[in-house]
């Protein structure tokens, strides 16, 4: 009888342990880089740092302070403003671009797809630097056009223009990215559905309302939720564009306020509290969105 060599005996046990070994890297990394920091930050939100070496238990004191903090509410309003701008401006533009690029009548689709997608390949920091020049008060591209209306707008210098400037920059950067999702969704809709609608006498708009949109529902839900989460986590773009959220915190967002508290003010407990409040806001909004879009519904 032929026996297996020693080398092979080593692997006899592999069937039992291999699955655990394969999934182990994820769990190890998750525990080290996600699980531990998550729990640690939750604990931290109940404390406040006393310098570098010690901390003091404050219970829900940080949460109470946060809800009374006018800069937090202003940052929340700005963040909501950006999210609303993203949902009402950026996503319709992305859908429109996708429909155009999916139509038979547009030429050079591949080049256009690349052109619209390209901004997302540029790091946020560079986008902010580029748009700093675009919004330049004296010689910027935007004011070069608007100056004819008689006003030299301080896009990054006047309270009311800061968030619109950030939203427009967000549209430039992300509309092409979301367009790709919509395009993939559009290409997955069966042609027969349009043919059947045409047989029933539906015009283009009716076909869009009753065939395209319902078929795109899962994609729309995904893009809405992901865009909403991204909007609520906005940081680098306004931070660089407005040089730290000024004037008068007009460009401040929740994550920017978190950063300031954690790193500039050395109030790590308060920063952790902001992080957890942001987590709950994102979780609630995402669940509501998914519910409204019928993702939990049984088909």
């Amino acid at each position: 009888m032929k026996t297996k060599p020693t080398t092979y005996r080593f692997w006899n046990q592999q069937q039992k342990i291999a699955p655990y070994l394969f999934i182990a890297p994820f769990y190890i990394l998750f525990v080290v880089f996600m699980g531990y920091p998550l729990i640690s930050s939750l604990v931290m939100s109940l404390y406040e740092m006393r310098g570098f070496q010690s901390r003091i238990f404050v219970g829900i004191g940080n949460f109470v302070d946060l809800f009374r903090d006018p800069i937090f509410w202003k940052s929340l309003r700005n963040t909501a403003y950006f999210a609303a701008g993203t949902l009402t401006l950026q996503l319709p533009i992305a859908l429109l671009l996708a429909i155009l690029l999916n139509s038979k009548f547009v030429r050079g689709k591949n080049i256009l797809r690349l052109a619209f997608f390209a901004p997302v390949l540029v790091a946020g920091v560079f986008v902010a630097i580029i748009f700093n020049l675009v919004y330049d008060q004296r010689a910027g591209l935007v004011n070069e056009e608007f100056i004819f209306f008689g006003k030299e707008i301080g896009w990054l210098n006047e309270e009311n223009y800061v968030m619109p400037a950030v939203i427009l920059t967000g549209v430039w950067q992300w509309a092409g990215f979301n367009m790709i999702y919509f395009l993939a969704g559009l290409q997955g809709i069966r042609q027969e559905l349009y043919e059947a609608a045409a047989v029933d006498g539906a015009n283009w708009w009716q076909a869009f309302l009753h065939v395209t949109l319902p078929s795109l529902r899962p994609v729309i839900a995904f893009v809405f939720v992901v865009s909403m989460i991204g909007s609520l986590q906005l940081f680098d773009l306004p931070y660089i564009l407005t040089n730290g959220g000024e004037p008068a915190d007009a460009g401040s967002t929740i994550v920017m306020y978190l950063y300031k508290n954690g790193f500039q003010f050395m109030r790590l407990g308060y920063a952790a509290t902001i992080g957890w409040v942001l987590f709950f806001i994102i979780a609630v909004i995402s669940i509501v969105q998914l519910k409204l879009l019928g993702i939990f519904r049984d088909e």
């Binding site: 330049d136 008060q137 301080g154």
Partner: peptide, 21 residues
Amino acid sequence: TPVYGTWHGDPSNFAAMQDGK
């Protein structure tokens, strides 16, 4: 006049200086 751009070292501010503003 308020600083052009986001601080005194902003290209916008330098442009205003060069324009004699």
